[in-house]
Design a protein around this nucleic acid. Structure first.
Lengths: 119, 119
DNA sequence: CATTATACCGAATCTTTCTTCGGTTATTGT
DNA sequence: ACAATAACCGAAGAAAGATTCGGTATAATG
């Protein structure tokens, strides 16, 4: 976790949302957990492009914000297992909407990106 | 605009979405334009916390992606004016959803942030 | 009981993004 | 014509975020 130098504006809802489930991998992590991939190792394997460390950090953050829960009731796993909290589940519809939007416009965006290494 | 060193995964809808309207200020810019704040100066004043430069850059990016349009038909303004494109308008419901989510959970998040300068 | 796997953590480094600052060009208003 | 304002750009550097690497502790396995 990082020390901020510039104050945040938590009065903007969009800012709060991107604070909580923005970032490069948090959505993927939530998606994984929602699919029942509960243990850190499994999440890391599922999102193999991401570094192990960032998944650890973001799991900790999601836990901190109460978006996910760490369960002791280890049915299958050996140790840690995460599930979505009630609050966490309220994020899912937003994620699907974003995913849907992105997928239906990805061709268009890819076209624009072609031959362009900048953004 | 910045030169990327790591390739992007445009096959993930969420990634595409955050590529197009993620970032620190793009949502605010879209919100401003949606409210009829059309000219760059006015947008800068509306989002006074953001630097002028980043608004210029992100306006250019939104224009590049076809999310906004630059209009020559200057009714009121002296020079540039931006409006949401048809594609741009499809983003609005997602923004409201995010805003709504953020606002209804901001108290909770603020509480967690208290006395903590990290995230 | 030694080995292995898992869950974490800290620090250094690197990439991406944002900000600051100093420009140029063109339009507006007097 | 001349200042003032607006739009836009480039480059340097700061800040945020991600990655890499090397740890410790503890639980599972043979």
């Amino acid at each position: 976790m990082y020390e901020r130098k510039i104050e945040e504006n938590l009065d903007c809802g969009i800012y709060v949302a991107s604070r909580v489930f923005g970032g490069k991998w948090k959505c993927c992590i939530l998606d994984a957990i929602n699919r029942g991939i509960a243990r850190p190792v499994d999440i890391c394997n599922y999102i193999s492009e991401a570094s192990k460390r960032v998944i650890e950090i973001q799991l900790a953050e999601l836990l901190f914000f109460g978006i996910i829960e760490k369960c002791a009731e280890d049915t299958y796993p050996k140790k840690s297992a995460y599930t979505l909290s009630e609050v966490g589940k309220t994020i899912l519809p937003i994620l699907s909407q974003m995913d849907e939007w992105g997928l239906s416009h990805s061709g268009f965006i890819k076209e624009r990106q072609k031959g362009i290494q900048v953004s």
